[in-house]
């Protein structure tokens, strides 16, 4: 039982950065913008987050720095793709390369430094409940925030008028424009929100997961976040399932190795990705004739006619 609890704890801590970054990207893509720069925004968020926390000694200020840094980098993307209607795929890739380089520069002075990581919730007696106590009542603030964020996003997209407009912009920007909605402004806000979430997801790594800074520490998590959005067919709660499933398979394959089953580790390491591909195939096969669940205007530049 203690073992199950330990595994669950590890799965949640490993999945949270993916969930945070993917939540933001989901909103961005729902508004019809494809930002492939998640990895770049995450790593810059990580560098700035660590710098902020190291200088002030406060994890909260560090997280805020991460959020602002991610949003600032996404503003560059917004300016290029929305303001100048540049190709979103190319701009997103460039953003990742820029972010990785920039983070190395920002973080150079902090290599080898360490901080005290984010604290865990502790409620006397409640947290001590076997099996579920620590899993539900003993996490750090990032975990609770990521879940609250996702519920908030669901509520916004499906229960508010603003969310409906955002989805309309993503599905058919010409119609939304004809109805008088400010397509570019809505998209810009979505991109900034996505940048902030990616920055926070990146900051989670050096603030809570492994409390130190090294270059390149996101190690491809931004790309996985992008895949998760497709995996979830742009639906918030399916995103949560996807993130925890991905984290779960990653952790379980480590445990399977340690028990010495002798399955090739290379195959085990590729399991999470294999599972992602299989689910994607299954989804498009089931949907078949009903067409793609993607927002119809995803990735298309919008130039208002004058």
């Amino acid at each position: 039982m203690e073992f199950v609890e330990a595994v669950l704890l590890t799965v949640i801590t490993a999945s949270t950065p993916l969930l945070l970054a993917a939540s933001g990207e989901l909103v961005v893509e729902r508004a019809g913008v494809l930002n492939l720069g998640v990895e770049g925004m995450m790593i810059v968020g990580g560098a700035c987050g660590f710098a902020g926390a190291y200088l002030t000694g406060s994890i909260a200020i560090g997280a805020l720095c991460g959020i602002l840094a991610g949003a600032a980098l996404s503003a560059v993307f917004a300016a290029v793709t929305l303001g100048l209607a540049a190709n979103q795929v190319a701009s997103g890739l460039a953003l990742t390369i820029l972010g990785v380089g920039l983070s190395g520069l920002i973080g150079a002075g902090y290599v080898g430094q360490k901080i005290d990581g984010a604290g865990h919730l502790y409620i006397p007696y409640v947290t001590d409940i076997p099996l579920i106590g620590k899993v539900i009542f003993g996490e750090n603030a990032f975990v609770y925030f990521s879940i609250a964020l996702l519920i908030g996003i669901w509520y916004f997209l499906y229960r508010t008028r603003a969310g409906l407009i955002l989805r309309a912009v993503g599905d058919n920007h010409a119609s939304a424009h004809a109805l008088g909605y400010p397509v570019l402004r809505i998209r810009m806000l979505a991109v900034l929100f996505g940048g902030a979430c990616a920055g926070l997801g990146g900051a989670y790594l050096p603030l809570a997961y492994t409390p130190f800074w090294v270059s390149g520490m996101t190690a491809g998590r931004g790309w996985i976040a992008l895949a998760l959005v497709v995996f979830a067919s742009w639906l918030p709660f399916r995103l949560m399932v996807g993130a925890y499933l991905f984290g779960g398979i990653t952790i379980l394959q480590l445990h399977a190795q340690a028990t010495g089953l002798g399955i090739p580790s290379q195959l085990m390491s590729s399991l999470p990705y294999l599972a992602t591909i299989l689910v994607l195939v299954a989804i498009s096969w089931v949907r078949g004739r009903r067409g793609s669940p993607a927002p119809a205007s995803l990735g298309l530049a919008f130039v208002p006619d004058r």
Partner: peptide
Amino acid sequence: KIIWVNAWYDPGKEAAAARAL
């Protein structure tokens, strides 16, 4: 007990492997 993370460098995965061990 041995875990191969199939990376030289992925702090998150290294930490997860340490925890699993």
